[in-house]
Every structure is written in structure tokens, then in C-alpha cells.
Design a protein around this nucleic acid. Sequence first.
RNA 1: GGGCCCGUAGCUUAGCCUGGAUAGAGCGCCAGCCUCCGGAGCUGGAGGUCCCGGGUUCAAAUCCCGGCGGGCCCGCCA
Length: 609
Amino acid sequence: MREIANSTWNIWSKAGFEVSMNDIYESLEEPPLEKFGDIALPTFRFSKKFKVNYKELISKTLRELDLRRLRVISRVNVIGGYINFFINEECAAKELFQTISNIGYDYGLKTAEKPLRIVVEHTSANPVHPLHIGHGRNAILGDVLSRILTKRGHRVIRRFYINDMGRQVAILAYGCLTLGSVQPTGKPDHFYGIIYSATNAVMEIDRLKKELEEARKKGDYIEVEKVNSELLDWLNVLAELKSKNNKLVMTLIGRLKGKDHEKEIQNIMRTYEKRLDENIVKTVRRICADVIEGFRETLGKMGVEFDFWDWESDLVWEGIVDEVLAKAKKSPYFTIYKGASALDFSALQKISEVREKLKLPKSFEIPPLILRRSDGTTLYTTRDIAYSIVKFKKADKVINVIMSEQKLAQAQLRLALLALGYRREAYNLIHYSYEIVNLPGVKMSGRKGRFVDLDSLIEEAISRAYFEVSKRNPNMAEEWKERIARIVGLGAVRYALVSVSASKPLTFIWDNVLNFEKNSGPYIQYTYARAINILKNYGKKVNFDLETLDYNVLRKPIIRRLLILLIKFPNTFTKAADELKPECLVEYAGKLADTFNSFYTAEPVVKEE
RNA sequence: GGGCCCGUAGCUUAGCCUGGAUAGAGCGCCAGCCUCCGGAGCUGGAGGUCCCGGGUUCAAAUCCCGGCGGGCCCGCCA
């Protein structure tokens, strides 16, 4: 493909048309029908650019091409404004085999010209309850991106941000401290998840009861109705939690009675941030560490690992957040907003270059960002500014895999970095935004403890896979069935979570996810197994001797199709890596599997040698 | 009130950034294929107002404007 773009570029530049070789290269596309050609070059764009008629441009190009007699092109086919190239099979095969015999499994994994240091921060769930399917999508996207970028030659660092200074952790800690010394039973994230949700529920119930009373006094019966139904919902939540661990929840309800929850929570937050009481600090840390251990187990099952687990609290205690605040005070954008330290973006965001480079919404007034509460404690975004700076210390680019809900917050973060003079950071911070995962028939709420957690999701995937495997292989040894079910089940989930473009909501339907036919993880794995078995049955090392190859077989349509598809892999990979589109690879894998299976049926490889 | 994302076959979706050739797949449906390396397969068929209405253009699923439907965001929450 490079050669096609290159020679076209040669011809055009010689003719005096100003164009870059990359421009041509990137215009190359897939013809809609196989019979049109292998690679198409649309000429409309260029004819417009060069101000010549496209027919003229084409005939001129063809004449020159003819003179050069490129060996990579066997035939050229013009339809409309398209120049369709047929690739010379022999030439393609030679190159393919040569590359594969040289670099083997790294075929197509083209290394970037300028390797970068890239941080991928992903998952980063609050350590207050088990991971759910949404975190699953986050984790798989982050993990797959990291793997692709690593193969592209970048130095990737995978980081998990432990958000231990937020209100949610304080609520969990409040519950735990109220219970006194608790020893977690079972998986820690599940155990603490119950305490968190129950504490939350009790607080909500108490708050709603007060609201209800006030509404009654006022005689606002619409409000009474509204609050009442909300109250009922939370009472149900509590009942659901009791069914999970009755003793624990009942004890918690008893001990929380009559307390001023808000005051306690605020006290915990302040104590923790300012390190006023080492006991509380230790307790909060231990709880979070326990929950994180649960996360690590779940993620490990999914094949997801991290290089660093960064504690939000460390940023504060090590004084990095203070440095940010000091810097902010000196910033020309510093202001006092509603009596608190803040950054005022009104001037900065008007600059159109800034809006464009930071990818801010077209016309949205981003309000001032408050950096510090009146009680002196910091806010999430302030700490996130500090974290971003830390991440950039050893990185050229930072990719945050964060759900789309946080788009505005992420835009605000970039703006804040710029306001503080962190220009490089602001411009190289990428919010890799993704949409929610829908499970038909399930309404999820993290706070209410209503979600399908990843552990049970994985279990279900494996047991569904087991069912399918034993149905198809009734005589297989039990141990093998289980091993295969694990691999297939997990592969199916990973595949499902990465196969839909991140910007679209993903609908998770078991029948599709664990469909063993086409367009699924299991199908790709099955095809791979068949391919590997050919090699196994062949039993010898594959001979890549280019001299003894019979190039006539390449004219067979199915073999030719497979060959052409294979030589396009490097481009697909490069696109997936550079445009951060892992789903491109999924699509390619599916197409390759389809083509391979057709080939497999049509051509008995081992027999033919 | 303002902003962002999504809307493509009954279902799940690719293509949209960078306009161009008969809108690609898979499931499901219909009709075929087991002397053969793993049938979790293969071959073929039916199935589309690309949410609607304008505009730009020689050309719009794609770009612009206005609607509709679904989701989300605008805190001294995270």
C-alpha cells in the first residue's frame, strides 16, 4: 500500500501538484466489491485540490503508472472517480512470507516512528463496593488500549487511581467505625459494599424522614408523595441488604441510630485529609486496601493488571496538592468565588484556540472551579490537577479512560491545567470517554447497591460457556471442559466489552455474548484453534522457502482473498493504535476468521502440503 | 435554560471525524452442504423511509440548521 501511495505521489508531484505522500496514503480505501480491486484511490478530493478534471487526473496518472510498470500492481481498474488497484499476488505473498519468517508473531505490529511514553489511567473505581459491568467496560478498554499501544512500540504505564479521599469512602469508613472492629468475611469488596450501601441507606432514610415531616407541615402533598416513594425505595434497599447479611446490617442500623451523620462524615473527611488522628487514617487506609485487594482479584480474573496503584491521599500528604494551590494563587486566573479559592475561566475559555485545542464544548460557559472548601479541605478536581501533573512527570501523553458523564469535569481539568501554566499537560491529556453498559431489564445504582457485579458476571459467563462446551463435546474430560469454559467465557466477555465503539452505549445480551457462532469471542478462538491444529497435524516446521513455492495456488479466489486480507493487517493495526480504536481490530479479526474458515473448508492444507 | 452523546434490517452493530461506486457484518428467518486438517464450520436467499424536515453540493448515512426520541452533565459531590 505504501508503494502505491508512493508512486502516485511521485507522479503527482512531478506533474507539479502539491500533495503529501501521507495524504494519498490515508485516502486509500477498501473497494465495496472484491471484483473492483484490492485497494481503491478516490480521486475527487485531489482533482478538486489540483483544480483539474478528475478524468484528466486519472488518465494522466494511468499513463505514468503504465510507464513505470510497478511490480506490486498487477492490474488497474478505473470506475467512476476511483482508481482500483489489483495487487500482484506473487509479490504480496513473497513479502508476506518473508516478513513472517523473519518476525513471526510480531507480523503487522508496526512500531511507531516516534515512540512515546504514554500513561493509561483506567478503571479507578471508588473503593466502596464491588466492580460492576460498567467498570468492566472501562477496564477492558483501558487494558486493550494499553496492549495495543505497547505493541505499537510506546512505553505504556497503566495506573489505577485510588480515590480514598472522597465522600463515598468517608461514608463507608463511617459505617465501619460505627460498627467498631469488623473483620471482613468473604470477598472484601463485596463485604464492604454491604456496609457502604447500608450506611448510605440509613443516612438517606433519616434525611428523607425529616423532609417528609417538613413537607407534611407545609401541607405540600405532592412533595409528600414524592418523598414517600423515595423513602420506600431506600427502605427496600435496606431490606435487600439484610437478606445478604442480616446480622451485620441490623447491628449497623442500631448503632447509627440518633447520630448526626453529616457531621460525622465531614469530621472523617477532615481528619483523614489533615491526618489529625493516625488511628482513623490507618482504618480508612486498611478498608480501602482491602477493597482494592478484591478489585485486584476480579481484574486479575479478567486478565487486567496495573503498573501503579496511586493513592489520592498521598498526593495531599506529600504536599503536591499544596503546591498546586500555591501555584493557583499566583495565577492570573485566581479568584475568590462565593468566599472560596477558585479559578476563573471566563477569560481563558473565550480564546478560540484554547477551546479548540482543549476540545471544549462549542459554546458553554464553564463556571469557576472551586479549589478548596471553606474548612480548608480540598476538592476532587483540585486533587485531580495534582494527579495529572504527577502522571505527566514521566509521560508525553496521558489517556484517562473515564465514563462520558465526566466530560465536563475533564474539560474543566484541562482548562485548569492550562490556567496554571501546564500547557504541555493540558494539550496532551486525552479523555477517552465511553458510554454506559445496558443490561436489558436491569436498573443499576451504585449507591443503592443494585448492580450486576463483575464477579458474578464472570461466573455466569464461565458457566454458560461450560454448558455450551459440554453440549458440543460430551465425551471430553471434565478437567478440559472446565479449562476451556474459563478461557471461552472470559474471552467472550472481553470481546463483547471491546467490540462496540466506546462512544456508543453497549447492550450486553448473553445470547449474543456467548453465541458460539460468528461475531463473538468464542468464534475467533475456535478459528484460532483450527488454524493451530493445522500446524500441529502438519508436524513439521513450515517451509518459507520462497523459491520452491507454487505461486499458482495464489490465483485461487479464496486463497487470494486470504492473502490480500493478511497484507492489510499492518494498516488495520496502525489505525487501531493511532486512532485509539480497538474495535477496528475486533472487526478485522472477525473478517479474518470468516475468510480463514471459508479457506479451511475449501482447501485441505495438510494433504496438499 | 444551556451543553454533550446516541438514533443504520425484527435484534446486536460497522461505516460518520476526512461527503463519492450497488450502506458492510453477525444473530434470528428460509433453502442447501458431513467419504475430507475441529460442523463452535461452509454455500446461497429474503430482509433497509440510514429517526424526521430543511439547507450546502455535480454528489449527503456522512457536513450545516431546525425538530423528535433515548441517555448524560451543568455542586464548597466524586
